[in-house]
């Protein structure tokens, strides 16, 4: 299958911004699992409830790397409350879209960033000097097709349960 990524995705994939890990971070977030393919870790520096700096490390496909890079740019300089409002969909929109079958598995940047922010809040609340990593489990299950219960979404071709009116993966309506 030829992979069709937008120019913005290819730009962020080939020249990812903010790669790495901050020393003495104020928050650490992690999301993903190797069965799905993508793992992202984010570290943030917070000053006056503003994200001063952010760095990421990602194991994953082109989309996962581009998503991490894009949200790191979007989050830098933002207030924590505003950063929490960034959704995975916002990131995909900023990237001029992602292939439908990558929307769920690779588009986890916002989850990873939010986990890092939660890690910061947790440390602050508990008076810890070093934050503990917050890990978000990726809920996507690649189960064996259950007899008669799933079928392929006509939009993104990912298996999705028959009994819900929208695709679990791409979110579009399924009649």
């Amino acid at each position: 299958m030829a992979i069709k990524y937008s120019q913005t995705v290819m730009d962020h994939f080939t020249n990812p911004r903010n790669v790495g890990e901050l020393e003495a971070p104020d928050g650490i977030g992690e999301v993903g699992n190797p069965a799905c393919g993508d793992i992202m870790t984010f570290t943030i520096k917070v000053d006056n409830d503003v994200i001063e700096d952010v760095k990421f490390k990602t194991f994953g496909c082109g989309a996962a790397i581009a998503v991490s890079s894009m949200i790191s740019e979007m989050a830098k300089g933002k207030g924590l409350e505003d950063a929490l409002k960034i959704s995975n969909k916002d990131v995909a929109d900023q990237l001029e879209g992602l292939p439908a079958n990558k929307m769920h598995c690779s588009n986890l940047g916002a989850d990873a960033l939010h986990a890092a922010i939660r890690s910061y809040y947790n440390a602050k609340e508990n008076g810890q000097s070093t934050p503990e990593v917050v890990t978000v489990d990726h809920d996507h299950e690649h189960e064996e097709e259950k007899e008669g219960h799933t079928c392929k979404c006509p939009h993104c071709e990912i298996e999705t349960p028959l009994d819900i009116p929208y695709c679990k993966s791409c979110g579009r309506e399924v009649s």
């Binding site: 799905c36 393919g37 993508d38 994953g60 990558k102 690779s106 071709e157």
Partner: peptide
């Protein structure tokens, strides 16, 4: 890799 296949 899973990321290559359409079915992930």
């Amino acid at each position: 890799s899973a990321c290559i296949s359409r079915s992930l």
